[in-house]
């Protein structure tokens, strides 16, 4: 344990952490919502919308905490609709285009398998606000993981085509998974204050889950892969700009209006 940080430094770290969580939830929820009305079966259309709704709900909680911790009088909507790409802190994984439904599900699975253990660890956070959000979100995310893992197995072990599509999804998305386990100064500070787990500590559980699921799904993780990173410090792929252009259109076109 390092020396206790000043309370304003802790607040800044909490705000940054809440932004990272909220932004990943928001962008993934947004991506999933793009499927609404276009999914391969009505039952899936409804199920994916449920996941998206959960994630948007979690976004509101995390961004609410970010606003509170930063204390600048901003609202979650200000954060969501008025920050540019460089202000966003989400993982690169979640901003990747949907691709086919298989890639969307694989992205969801790779995220869920990280998200759930993280939330479970956060239930023990020294910050009660973080712990409460994690408690609520973990119930939702446990179901997300159950469903996404199930579908990955079924499609991996389905037809030759579904297998090939799921394998292609793994290969495409894998480089974006490493970022989940990288730590920076903010993470170090959060970990030393007992606010959030060290990102690297989540890797083993994630690998076990993914390994088990892929074995059942007859899918292979790439043996070698580079790590794409930068999302959590505001350096994104080109895709995020388009997401924000669409998402923020009304707030940008009619500044200051209430909706």
């Amino acid at each position: 344990m390092s020396a206790p940080a000043s309370s304003s430094a802790v607040s800044a770290a909490v705000a940054e952490f809440a932004l990272r969580m909220g932004d990943s939830c928001l962008i993934l929820g947004h991506r999933n919502s793009e499927w609404c009305g276009h999914a391969p079966a009505l039952e899936e259309d409804i199920a994916l919308a449920n996941t998206a709704l959960d994630l948007i709900g979690q976004t509101q909680l995390w961004l609410g905490l970010a606003c509170e911790a930063e204390g600048k009088g901003r609202t979650p909507d200000n954060l969501a609709f008025l920050r540019d790409v460089s202000g966003y802190r989400n993982l690169l994984l979640v901003e990747q285009p949907n691709g086919d439904f298989g890639r969307t599900l694989m992205r969801q699975y790779l995220f869920d398998a990280w998200h759930l253990p993280l939330l479970k660890a956060l239930i023990g956070s020294a910050d009660r606000r973080i712990a409460e959000i994690a408690e609520k979100a973990s119930k939702e995310v446990a179901y997300h993981l159950e469903r996404s893992a199930d579908l990955v197995v079924r499609l991996g072990d389905g037809t030759a085509e579904s297998h090939a599509r799921m394998q292609a999804a793994v290969d495409f998305l894998w480089p974006y998974t490493g970022e989940m386990f990288l730590a920076d100064a903010v993470d170090d500070e959060l970990a030393s204050a007992g606010l959030a787990p060290e990102p690297g500590l989540l890797k083993a559980a994630w690998q076990v889950h993914v390994g088990t699921t892929f074995a059942e799904a007859t899918l292979k993780a790439p043996e070698k892969s580079f790590v794409q990173k930068g999302g959590r410090r505001g350096v994104h792929s080109e895709h995020l700009g388009y997401i924000l252009a669409e998402m923020q259109f009304l707030q940008r076109a009619y500044p200051g209006a209430s909706w």
């Binding site: 609404c36 409804i46 709900g57 509101q60």
Partner: peptide, 28 residues
């Protein structure tokens, strides 16, 4: 569904998504 990704606030986005999702349910 056209406007889910362009809804002007987080709450409006959630409400619209829930509504359009309901329509899928009603179709079902």
């Amino acid at each position: 569904g056209n406007w889910i990704t362009r809804a002007p606030t987080l709450e409006r986005k959630a409400i619209l998504l829930a509504k359009v999702q309901d329509e899928a349910g009603h179709g079902l």
